[in-house]
């Protein structure tokens, strides 16, 4: 059984947001537009946030890409009254869109605030609709959505591997964000395979997880900026 995980190397990440756009194009996430974006209706399954601190000239600025952490103990799934979100056997916290009734308790209980809601019927100009990915489900208004590690890609890769009667190679399947990251700051793979890149990196001395103290056991690991880690 696979256990999918992601590693984000903050030392390499430049805050370029290619991952953000890649995710939106892959997963048919429309832009919200100016007014809606200011009301917080823009959906960023992958969200690059920044922190600026200090005073001139001792300024610091850091970028942090935040997808869903795919918690192993997800606080979001428990609270859903209709089990529209659940952790699948491969550890992905998935959303059963047609079942979601939109109470948004999962949203308010996600400590990482990475769940997004369809405040309106998602819409694209007619022309853009030609460019929609047919592999992802069309989320209607009134339901919740989130990063699912590009589950459609994983499923496809699994089908292929099954047909070819072999095991999945490390790095054979990557989500859209990982595939595009220009500085190669994102890694994706099977945490159950001790030899996979993500497994090894997740044990790096630079590795940490967000809000570790909450016991949510995220499967997204970060690598700290700055110091060299020989253990890699």
């Amino acid at each position: 059984m696979y256990r999918w995980g992601m590693v984000i190397d903050l030392d390499k990440c430049t805050g370029c947001q290619a991952c953000v756009v890649a995710c939106r194009q892959e997963n048919n996430i429309p832009s919200a537009g100016e007014e809606e974006a200011h009301l917080g209706r823009a959906k960023f399954w992958m969200n690059v946030v920044s922190e600026v601190k200090g005073n001139y000239p001792n300024v610091e600025m850091h970028f942090l890409p935040i997808p869903c952490m795919q918690c192993d103990r997800p606080p979001c799934t428990m609270v859903c009254p209709v089990a529209a979100t659940y952790k699948n056997p491969e550890g992905i916290v998935a959303q059963v869109y047609p079942r979601c009734i939109g109470v948004r308790m999962c949203i308010s209980n996600c400590p990482y605030t990475v769940r997004y809601f369809n405040w309106y019927e998602p819409s694209w100009p007619e022309e853009y609709q030609k460019g929609l990915n047919p592999d992802v489900y069309h989320r209607r208004k009134g339901i919740t959505e989130k990063c699912n590690f590009c589950i459609q890609r994983i499923r496809r890769a699994k089908e292929k591997v099954k047909k070819e009667k072999r095991k999945m190679r490390d790095g054979e399947v990557v989500p859209a964000c990982v595939e595009t990251c220009p500085s190669e700051a994102l890694y994706f793979g099977d945490l159950n395979d001790p030899k996979s890149r993500v497994s090894r990196l997740s044990k790096s001395r630079r590795a940490f997880r967000l809000l570790e103290e909450m016991g949510t056991e995220p499967k997204v690991y970060y690598l700290k900026e700055g110091e060299w880690d020989v253990g890699e």
Partner: peptide, 22 residues
């Protein structure tokens, strides 16, 4: 093409899915 939510769904959840047309 798979225009479903694309997950290995446990049976107990499947009944909430649309039956056809997807």
């Amino acid at each position: 093409g798979a225009a479903t939510c694309g997950m290995a769904l446990p049976d107990k959840i499947l009944h909430a899915l649309p039956k056809k047309g997807e």
